[in-house]
Design a binder for these strands. Structure first.
Lengths: 111, 111
DNA sequence: GACGATGTGCAACCATCGGTTGCTATCGCC
DNA sequence: GGCGATAGCAACCGATGGTTGCACATCGTC
C-alpha cells in the first residue's frame, strides 16, 4: 500500500532551492524576494517564482509592507509537510526492516 | 544552517512516480519495466526512464534475466534516502518547535 | 515636489524533464 | 524459421526552473 501523500505539497518541498528558502525563512532571515535571493545562487525572479509556488500550496504567506513584500512560513502547513516526510520515511524503513528480517531467516535455514 | 542533503538522491525520490515505483519494488512486485508499467498510469518508456534515474543514483539495480531486465531496490541506498528525509523532517520540526516556544513566551509577557 | 535608488511584476526566451508515440532490435519458444 | 514479448532509441510535446530585459511603484532626499 502506498503512503497517502499530497503530491503538490511534496513537490513543493522537493525542489532544493525551495527547501533552502524554507530553511532561510525558518532561520529568521528577512523574507523579501530580493533579500532571500542574496543568500542563494539564483536571481530574484527565480526566488519570486519559488515563493509563488510555496504560497500557492500554503507553505508561506506574504504581507505587503510598503514597497516590499515580506514572506513568512506557515507553521501549520510546514508541520503537515514534515508529517508526510516522516510518514514516507517510516513506511520505507518498516519495509526495509521486514526485508532484512526475511533475509536473515533465510540465512538461518541455510546454516 | 541547512541540512546536508544529496540533491540527486532527494530529487530522485521527489518524483511521485518514482516513489510509487519504489513502493512497488518494496512490495515485491516483479521488477521489469513492463510489469511495473502495468501497475502505473504511465507508459513502459516513462517507467524505463524513471528506472534509469533510480539506477543512476544507486537506489535500484538491474539484473538481466534472459530477454527481460529485473530491477530490485538497493536497501542500503534507500536507507540513506530515508535518513535524509528524517534529517530534514527533524530539523524543520525542531525549528518549528523553537518558534512556537518563542511565540508562547511572548504571549506570556503580554499577559 | 522632483529625482534617483531600491523593490516588485511581467514577458520572452532557453534548457531540462516527465511523458507520449513510433519504430527497431533482441530474445524465447512453438 | 517465425511469431510474440521485452527492451532500447529517437522525435516530439508541455510544464517547469532559470535567465535577461524592461516597466511600474515606493521610499528617501535635495
Amino acid at each position: 500500500m502506498t503512503v497517502a501523500v499530497d503530491d503538490d505539497l511534496w513537490s513543493a518541498i522537493g525542489d532544493p532551492t525551495r527547501r533552502k528558502l524554507l530553511d532561510l525563512l525558518l532561520a529568521g532571515t528577512a523574507g523579501t524576494a530580493t533579500s532571500l535571493s542574496d543568500e542563494l545562487p539564483v536571481t530574484r525572479q527565480a526566488v519570486a517564482k519559488h515563493l509563488g509556488v510555496l504560497d500557492r500550496v500554503g507553505l508561506v504567506h506574504a504581507t505587503p509592507a510598503g514597497r516590499e513584500k515580506r514572506y513568512r512560513v506557515d507553521q501549520d502547513q510546514l508541520g503537515r509537510a514534515v508529517a508526510q516526510l516522516n510518514a514516507v520515511g517510516d513506511t520505507w524503513d518498516a519495509r526495509l526492516q521486514r526485508i532484512k528480517r526475511i533475509a536473515e531467516s533465510i540465512q538461518e535455514t541455510n546454516d
